[in-house]
Amino acid sequence: MKRTFTLTTAIAALFAASIANADEIRVLNWQGYGTDADWATDAFTEATGHTVVHEYFNSEQEMLTKLRTNPGAYDVVLINASFTPQAQAEGLITSIDTAMIENFDDVSANMAENDDLNAGGALHGVPWTWGLTSFAINTNTFDEAPTSIEVFWDPDYNGRVSIRDDALEAVQFAAIATGQDINNIEDLDAIQVKLAELMPQIKTYWGSENDWNQFMAADDLDVATIWSGSASRSMAAGLPVQFVVPEEGAIGWLDGLSIPTSSTKQEAAHQFIDWMIDPEFYTRWAEDGAPASANAAAAAALPEDAFNRQVLGDPEVVARVQFQRPVSDETREAYLTMWQALKAAQ
């Protein structure tokens, strides 16, 4: 209760000037991904008077389609940086007025200057969260964490391996294993061979974080790819898992919050984004398991032993990360065809 009070007073102080006109803003995001936490929207409403309504998407393609088909329906949308240039090029999102976002000064410069978020020469997405796609191990099986991604191909773990059922992720994962640039894959055949060798090792694919937790809890898997944010949540929930960033590297992603061009409540939208990158919001969210914050001040506000500080705060780890760039539709299609053929051959 006390916490909510400090939160609300903090935001109230920030937005005292704009309480006058209350809007209903519509947010488009993945379900359960920070923006729709009750405590967060309640605090925002209490401070600014603006209410928040959510709508969800299940894939980036669906998100883009919703933006195209429902002009004016959304005021804030979460867009992965690798899709921001496409959304910008189609005129779906507008540039951000950083002067209206007080917390923006604390956003790490390398994120704020990210090429994809600055598509079209101006900031079109406020860096919000980032994380890694790497893998986690079952600590009941491993005495010592492996250092190489090759553990997926280790016959000792035959039938105890899982990766996500996603063509892009599978291909980029194999790109890392074959020492290639995930954004500029030159030897696709090598990747096909590598994945074909991986298939017999796999017990099942996972689709959602919930699937993953169930398989781990049932002791079905020893090693499986996972997102860093999900791994931190699973560890917090007491599952015997440990997140590993292998020496070969990991896939990095960056999520930004954008404002649709058609939004009629731009001011309220900016305020909501400001609240989303506020350290107060982030430290509370991190208690439930959150991805890493793009706001340096928010990251620094975490406790010393927090997962996002220990694992993702390590500069050596960050140096090994390859951040995802936009992928063209043709490339995506080619990856999908390859992935489906590999699955069909099982």
Partner: peptide, 17 residues
């Protein structure tokens, strides 16, 4: 699991994924 890819799952992928 791994052997569970069928015609129906591919159709589902086209709509959902």
């Amino acid at each position: 699991g791994r052997v569970g890819t069928y015609y129906g799952t591919v159709i589902e992928d086209q709509f959902v994924a």
